[in-house]
Simulated scan of single mutants.
Amino acid sequence: MTNITLVPGDITRQAVDAVVNAANSSLLGGGGVDGAIHRAGGPEILRECRALRSSRYSEGLPAGQAVATGAGLLPAHWVIHTVGPVWSCSEDRSELLGSCYVESLRVADALGARTAAFPAISTGAYRWPVAEAARIALRAVHGTETGVAEVRFVLIDNTARDAFAETLQQLGGSGPNGV
């Protein structure tokens, strides 16, 4: 059983086995969580991402998929990069968003990670409504069989934390401290 916790703060400071990056498809850094992870992790992450781009992902990493690199200077062993979908009011992309979490856990399992820290994928520049993103994220993690013992959602503001806490409680968790 995976323990799900909600914490405020900076995902780049999480001492976990794997930090999940809400990456853009280029894998070469960007704004938000992606930029913060690349800046804090140093040039080694970018070097590994460039190697991925020159081999398996020459067209970029598709939305809903995940791939790992080392964590560079972060207090983690790996960074799992996943590309969330851009929110659309005319097209349901919920399955792609859920896939980000499922595929990230699959990669974490392949690495042997026991702890993982996730951001609220697609809720920043990709404009996904936070309450809906929380439901998708927590259902995906809750419903995925994994060897990851602790999934930590690192949330940057009270709006996100409240939305995730409410959904976690609906899934049978105890609220902000987890299930």
Rank of each mutant, 00 (worst) to 15 (best):
V141M: 06
I156T: 07
L138G: 04
R161W: 00
A165G: 07
A137C: 05
F153P: 03
F164W: 05
T146P: 05
V154Y: 03
I156G: 06
I156V: 06
I156P: 01
I156H: 13
R152T: 12
N158F: 09
V151M: 11
D157K: 04
D157T: 05
V148G: 08
L138M: 10
A149G: 05
N158C: 02
V151K: 03
A163L: 07
E145N: 11
H142N: 10
I156R: 11
L155D: 00
T144F: 14
E150Y: 01
T159L: 11
F153C: 04
V148K: 12
R139H: 15
L155F: 05
A149V: 00
F153S: 05
V154F: 02
N158K: 12
N158V: 03
D157Y: 09
A149S: 09
A137E: 01
T167C: 14
V154N: 03
T167V: 15
L155V: 00
T146H: 10
D162S: 15
E145M: 10
T159P: 01
A149C: 00
G147S: 14
R161I: 00
A137L: 07
A160H: 04
T159W: 00
V141Y: 05
E150S: 09
D162E: 15
A163V: 06
N158G: 08
L138S: 06
V151I: 11
V151T: 13
